[in-house]
Design a protein around this nucleic acid. Structure first.
Length: 106
DNA sequence: CGTATGGCTCCTC
DNA sequence: CGAGGAGCCATAC
């Protein structure tokens, strides 16, 4: 599954989701962004929760790095994908991403 | 088709 | 430090 394939399948979903997912893909590898950051990128600064919903329903788990999206506090937040927050942290550690004030274990 | 409820949140009191 | 409200989208009934 390539990014272009994902972009193509996105068209079957709502434009809002597309924007959210695209913004996620725009995050540099090994780095993290906040939900608010995504919301602002898509032009919906007040739709942080909607962004979370979109990411939670993200059908393109590995292609769209929704795990790079964390809270503004630096907390990992939540993760609906299999493995939960633990998997999220695992992926971030795998990418050598540094979280501001996150538990260094698990 | 319209209404009601939930969500990986954020900000202010 | 803790609790509550706000504003946005998608899904289910």
């Amino acid at each position: 599954m390539t990014k272009e394939q994902v972009l193509l399948k996105m068209r079957s979903h709502t434009p809002f989701r597309q924007a959210v997912w695209k913004a996620c893909m725009a995050i540099p590898a090994g780095q993290t962004r906040s939900y608010k950051w995504i919301a602002e990128q898509i032009g919906r600064p007040g739709a942080v929760r909607a962004v979370g919903s979109a990411l939670g329903k993200n059908p393109f788990a590995p292609i769209v790095p929704c795990h790079r999206v964390i809270r503004s506090d630096g907390n990992p937040g939540g993760f609906s994908a299999p493995g939960g927050v633990k998997a999220k942290l695992k992926l971030l550690k795998k990418e050598k991403a540094r979280l501001p004030g996150l538990l260094r274990q698990a």
